[in-house]
Design a protein around this nucleic acid. Structure first.
Lengths: 246, 246
DNA sequence: CTCAATTATTGGCTTTGTGCCACTATTTTA
DNA sequence: TAAAATAGTGGCACAAAGCCAATAATTGAG
């Protein structure tokens, strides 16, 4: 068969193809949106106003809208923007969970993204499908609220991934405000890792990369003032060694 | 509203819920199946016997079957077993790609897994939807065949991920036959990384973990015989330092 | 005005694991 | 018996982390 014939055949095939002829799972995106509040890791959750799991807390997510979303990341960003107003977060795909039991409506697939938001002036909007929204504090990888669907498990695994990446990357930098001291950055690492590091080692690790630059300002806190830094290089950095002893 | 009332409401809601009322993307799984042949990394590809992309090579994949597959991983394993007979590979979810352009039939989501198969006696079956199947050699992260859909890009990115993980994990061990010499293992690392390492450093790195154990046998190759090892610990190992200079 | 308390920052030695490269060991074949 | 080939080791240098004590800069109590 010639290549032209195959092209023709494919056109015919596509013309007669009807998406409704095949059973498909539902497809959604869920965001695990982290930020730092009072030196503790928090995650954004919403209270569902619709069935199923009505009036229960859940991660920020929603179905892919085939008309407005060109790809999965657009779905993730649309929901993120709707709830926080943030346009350009650090956003990374975490994992996709698909099975026949996670949603009472039937076979369901969700692609989970996680976002890191700087800890400054974020205004929350309840948005669609929700009647409440709040930051929930993460303790020991868990929050006190029970979440809808398999979201508690997703949150636990995603937080574990974030923690593991903090051991060898600069990801926690995306949780920082524009200007910050090295001590403040170290506190954020502590919040993510739930473990303390030596300040000398931490400073050396951060300053021997090209990630940070000094500002002309100092943080005045009533004791010895501390140098304020800002991010110089926006790319995530991968260290060649992990932090040990976790 | 009482909790009982909500339960009742949810039952009513689920009863009236009709999956066909909502447009959903198609959902598939694609496998990037690696093995080692003649000291080179290879990937399994099939020639499609159906539209679209009829008669073109593609990764091993297929649609989720809502009736037989309980979850996405079952879809991945079902296709893997159909083509190779392998039941228990190393299988890891790589990434999910979903957009409106990747499939001419419309909005499509595919979850990509990668599998590592030991380099020994695997019998290939053409299986459903294909009229040919073969191992394609990976050179510089690419194969010479053009692949259907966005599979060439998926292969490139997935191979990059495998390469990057080989720098700090023991993943290449899953590509080894039951017994192997340290030199043979190093050759597999070389095949994955496309770069050479010092034999002393490599042996030290491998032997200071608890990953391997000596067998009583030696590989006889006509020169000095080499100790044969087998895998002692089936869990993937994460080194605290990456191999440098790549 | 001086000193204790507090927080920021540095000095410097130890430890760990890799890079490097020359050297030794064991086998076959010429 | 020696050369060639492959397996495996000795040992030092180096980079980056751990560890912990010392120094620096500031405020507030007396």
């Amino acid at each position: 068969m010639t290549s032209d014939n195959i092209q023709k055949e494919e056109c015919d095939y596509l013309e007669s193809y009807n998406a409704k002829d095949f059973d498909r799972p539902s497809t959604s995106v869920d965001n695990v949106i982290y930020t730092i509040i009072n030196n503790a890791l928090h995650v954004l959750i919403v209270k569902r106003s619709n069935h199923p799991f009505k009036d229960q807390w859940a991660l920020v997510g929603g179905f892919v809208d085939l008309n407005t979303d060109n790809n999965l990341e657009m779905t993730a960003k649309r929901k993120l923007k709707e709830k926080t107003g943030v346009n350009t977060p650090y956003l990374e795909q975490f994992s996709t969970i698909g099975n026949k039991d996670r949603d009472p409506r039937g076979w369901s697939v969700t692609t989970v993204y996680f976002a890191l938001l700087p800890s400054e002036n974020i205004t929350l909007n309840v948005g669609k499908g929700a009647n409440d929204i709040k930051w929930a504090k993460i303790d020991n990888g868990k929050i006190s609220e029970t979440l809808a669907f398999d979201h508690s498990e997703i949150l636990r695994e995603c937080t574990q991934r974030l923690r593991s990446k903090a051991l060898y990357t600069s990801l926690p930098l995306y949780l920082m405000p524009e200007k910050f001291t090295l001590h403040e950055l170290q506190e954020v690492y502590h919040a993510v890792l739930s473990s303390k590091m030596d300040p000398k080692s931490f400073r050396r690790r951060m300053l021997t990369t090209d990630l940070l630059e000094e500002t002309a300002e100092m943080r005045q806190t009533g004791r010895r003032p501390a140098m304020l830094y800002r991010v110089k290089n926006d790319q995530p950095f991968f260290f060649t060694r992990t932090i040990e002893g976790i």
